[in-house]
């Protein structure tokens, strides 16, 4: 399979997951574009290409790294850009009201959970996959997905209840 065909088949979920991570449409497109750039660069390598094609978890990690890399550049994290993104969130009804003291569910997922847990909650509750299938997609085996999912919900509940008490 060529890169363009793979990209056409996977753009939808990559963009959605990028949006979930960033909470902003423009940042999601930037993060997804960075991820595609990294994947395009890795494509000629047989081993990496096979892993990309077979493991959604691997591609998710690339997206998350691409998003992290983007924010490591100081000029991109200046106050003006943050203000623009916050405004965009309000206008589009996106994740995270910057004026709110109580975090949105999405913020809680990203702040309170580790990467595996947040991926699990995202795939099950936002993408509609079963717990077993979501676990397989991110490389978990046997009963692991159910344990990870239960632990994630427990941590989320504690985090959100704690935030509400503080707010």
């Amino acid at each position: 399979m060529g890169f363009a065909v793979w990209a056409a088949e996977n753009t939808n979920w990559i963009l959605r997951e990028s949006y979930f991570l960033t909470g902003s449409r423009s940042l999601a497109e930037d993060a997804a574009q960075n991820a595609f750039e990294k994947i395009f660069k890795a494509w000629p390598d047989d081993e990496k290409r096979n892993t990309i094609q077979q493991s959604r978890g691997y591609v998710s990690a690339i997206i998350r790294n691409a998003h992290s890399d983007y924010h490591k550049v100081p000029s991109r994290s200046n106050r003006n850009e943050q203000a623009l993104d916050a405004t965009e969130n309000i206008l589009t009804g996106g994740a995270g009201d910057p004026e709110s003291l109580v975090p949105s569910v999405r913020e809680a997922i990203l702040n309170a959970l580790d990467e595996t847990e947040s991926q699990m909650v995202y795939l099950v509750h936002y993408e509609g996959h079963s717990i077993g299938k979501a676990g397989a997609m991110i490389g978990l085996e046997a009963q692991q997905p159910y344990r990870v999912h239960a632990r994630a919900l427990k941590k989320l509940k504690i985090y959100l209840e704690g935030s509400e008490e503080e707010g």
Binding site: G2, A4, V5, A8, E9, P44
Partner: peptide, 12 residues
Amino acid sequence: DKGEGGGALRAG
């Protein structure tokens, strides 16, 4: 030259 990468967009 190795036949990988590139290629026109065929799906979408």
